[in-house]
Simulated assay, not measured.
Amino acid sequence: MNNTLNTLLIMEKRTEGKGEVRRSEDVEREAFGIDALDDALEGGLPRGTWTVVTGEPGVGKSILCMHFAYTGLEDDEPVIYVTTETSFRDVVRQARQFNMDLTQFKPVNLSDVLSGRVKPENAKLVVIDLFGLYRQYREMVKEAGEEGRRPSRALSIEVLEGAVRKAYEVLGFSEGKVSEPSRLIIDSMTAFWADKPAMARAYSYALRQSLYRSNITALLVSQYAPTTEASFGFGLEHIADGIIHMWMDKVEQTKTIRRWLIIKKMRLTNHAKDAYQVDIQPGKGLILIEANETQ
Rank of each mutant, 00 (worst) to 15 (best):
S115N: 08
A218R: 00
L211M: 09
V141L: 13
R117V: 03
I157Q: 04
S188G: 05
S222H: 13
D249S: 00
Q281V: 15
S115M: 03
L171E: 07
T228L: 10
Q94N: 13
T256R: 15
F32E: 05
T190C: 05
A291F: 08
E139V: 06
I80R: 12
P226G: 04
A230T: 14
F68Y: 15
T254S: 14
Q253S: 08
Y224G: 05
A198D: 12
N6R: 12
E169S: 10
S214G: 01
R183Y: 09
R135H: 02
V91G: 01
K177C: 04
A31M: 07
M189D: 05
M66I: 02
F32G: 05
L219W: 02
T217Q: 10
R29S: 03
T86I: 08
P107S: 01
A163S: 14
S87G: 10
G283E: 08
F98S: 01
Q97W: 08
E121A: 06
W50A: 00
K166W: 08
P107N: 00
Y70H: 15
Y81C: 09
V79A: 07
G172V: 11
S111E: 01
G58Y: 05
S182F: 01
A240H: 06
N109Q: 11
R22E: 14
V21K: 13
P226D: 06
L45W: 06
K142M: 10
T4P: 01
T228E: 09
Q223N: 11
P57E: 01
N215I: 04
E74L: 14
A31K: 14
V82W: 11
A36Y: 00
V108E: 01
T190P: 09
L114D: 02
T103A: 11
I157D: 09
D101M: 06
G242T: 05
Q104H: 07
T49Q: 09
E158T: 12
A36W: 04
G235D: 02
I287E: 14
G19I: 06
I287T: 08
K284G: 03
C65S: 15
W50M: 13
L207T: 04
T227Q: 14
L286A: 04
H245M: 08
D101V: 02
R93M: 10
D35L: 11
F131A: 13
S214L: 10
R135I: 01
K284E: 15
E77N: 08
V27M: 09
L102Q: 04
V164Q: 00
S111Q: 04
R96T: 02
R29K: 11
P57Y: 06
D90A: 12
V127Y: 03
Q136S: 12
F232G: 00
E25V: 10
D38K: 09
K124G: 00
N122T: 06
T4Q: 11
T256I: 07
G43R: 13
V126R: 13
A198K: 13
L133M: 15
K284I: 14
S62V: 06
W50G: 01
I10G: 05
T228H: 06
V251Y: 01
A36M: 12
W247V: 05
T54E: 12
L125P: 05
V82E: 04
T4A: 09
G44L: 00
I262R: 15
I262Q: 15
V251S: 06
R259H: 04
W260S: 03
T256K: 15
F173W: 12
A191T: 09
S179N: 14
F32C: 07
V251Q: 13
V178S: 09
I63S: 06
G148R: 13
